[in-house]
Amino acid sequence: MASQGTKRSYEQMETDGERQNATEIRASVGKMIDGIGRFYIQMCTELKLSDYEGRLIQNSLTIERMVLSAFDERRNKYLEEHPSAGKDPKKTGGPIYKRVDRKWMRELVLYDKEEIRRIWRQANNGDDATAGLTHMMIWHSNLNDTTYQRTRALVRTGMDPRMCSLMQGSTLPRRSGAAGAAVKGVGTMVMELIRMIKRGINDRNFWRGENGRKTRSAYERMCNILKGKFQTAAQRAMMDQVRESRNPGNAEIEDLIFLARSALILRGSVAHKSCLPACVYGPAVASGYDFEKEGYSLVGIDPFKLLQNSQVYSLIRPNENPAHKSQLVWMACNSAAFEDLRVLSFIRGTKVSPRGKLSTRGVQIASNENMDAMESSTLELRSRYWAIRTRSGGNTNQQRASAGQISVQPAFSVQRNLPFDKPTIMAAFTGNTEGRTSDMRAEIIRMMEGAKPEEMSFQGRGVFELSDERAANPIVPSFDMSNEGSYFFGDNAEEYDN
């Protein structure tokens, strides 16, 4: 993207840094990872977990959730003011799984939030270390993106479920800051804005008074975040219109849905970061690795190297396929839920299948599930090659597409044709070009129609051997075009429920 120079890199967003050079960025990201790792080690000690239990991804998720809940100030305040039966607002906890007599047992633990905050700050040299908290939120978000298709949420806001490739980060909490905003897809931002506008339509006082002023500035800020994701002048001009509207209503909703559809071809720039579970960072720190000293990046080879040398386990339900569970977590670790499966298959070195073909449910185990038949197995999170994460949407291309997802959002900077089903997408653009945004709409449609099938995206960008740390010898991959490109292809993934 041309304006790259004016933006802070995501590592800076990730670490609240002012302008830093590459070495400083690597050190501050490393410091953040160190903090998460030290916190995780301490929690495993508190909970008396064995090494194996500490490497269980379900335990990692519970521990991450506990610290996120302990620092969720708004919710904590709300819980104190609106006490609900049987919930102690000062405590947080969740299921911890232990191996007892050759069987997995679930144990519900409860801790004072104050105590968890103390352990977290102690692991982070006394700081609140917001960057580390956001990092864990993005890992949870990436896992949700890989596990669930947001059909219901899309339909509720009037969008087409086939636009799911635009929904990265749709389950990120509001408090995820600049680093969170960077990884949100165009569809996620559109959905947040539509929800806001709908509230304004239904509630006369939404934009009024002292609160209304705050609401208005939040609305304009979200519009600017979305505008910054678009790469064409016409899309940005249309966002200006939406932002400046005196009284946002149905016309703005129409414009936003139009823009979301246009992003299936004229893709937005959305950041991709490899955020790993805390149970990967903990053992690495415990083994003596100093992330701050060595430096770390979320968008280069580092996460690949770390996963190459990590042992992570997962509980497996009786009829689940461990290899499929591994694929789910591998995609989440690489922030690749909406990437082209052919690119992923090449990088991973084994075939990556669409969601609907995987015999696996989510990673988390519900409290009512029976533990008797639970097994555990090693997650295979290694890769054959590594590639640089991208934040450009890439230019655009036609490809055989599917009944489910009709476009992709690249996660890796790797040369390819970008699949999208042009006739299906263009069919949504018939007729409606009147109104105050008509010239911009016409211009956007013209650009979409001009998108050429034979153009290559990320020209000359390749993948790298894991021994090639400096990215000196790019390998331009070859793809098996007979395979499906979309992950949520004609899909039956479970729906995400809060």
Rank of each mutant, 00 (worst) to 15 (best):
R8K: 00
Q20M: 03
N21Q: 03
M32G: 06
I36R: 10
S50R: 09
G54K: 02
T62M: 01
E64D: 13
V67K: 09
S69W: 04
A70N: 08
A70T: 14
E73N: 05
R75C: 09
K87C: 07
D101F: 00
V109F: 10
E115Q: 09
I116N: 12
G126H: 04
G126T: 12
T130S: 11
G132N: 10
G132P: 06
S141V: 11
N142K: 11
R162E: 11
T171M: 14
L172N: 06
L172M: 03
R174G: 08
A179V: 09
M196G: 10
I197M: 13
R208N: 09
G212F: 10
A218M: 05
C223Q: 12
G228T: 14
Q231P: 07
Q235G: 09
Q241V: 04
R246F: 07
E254F: 14
D255W: 07
I257A: 05
A263Q: 03
I265E: 00
K273V: 05
K273A: 05
P277I: 06
A278Y: 01
G282D: 11
F291D: 11
V299Y: 02
D302L: 10
L307M: 11
Q308N: 15
S314R: 05
L315V: 11
N319T: 15
Q327E: 10
V329W: 13
W330Y: 07
A332K: 12
A337H: 03
E339R: 00
L341W: 11
R342P: 08
R348Y: 07
R348S: 10
K351R: 13
K351C: 08
G356D: 10
K357G: 07
K357W: 07
T360H: 09
M371Q: 07
M374Q: 13
E375H: 04
R382W: 08
S383V: 13
S383A: 13
T390R: 04
T390G: 04
T390L: 02
Q399G: 09
G404Q: 05
Q405S: 11
S407Y: 06
P410N: 07
V414R: 01
V414Y: 00
N417P: 12
P423C: 08
F429S: 02
G431Q: 13
T433N: 00
E434I: 07
S438C: 03
R446C: 07
E455Y: 05
S457P: 09
G460T: 03
L466D: 00
S467R: 12
R470G: 00
A472N: 11
P474A: 14
D480C: 06
Y487C: 06
A493C: 02
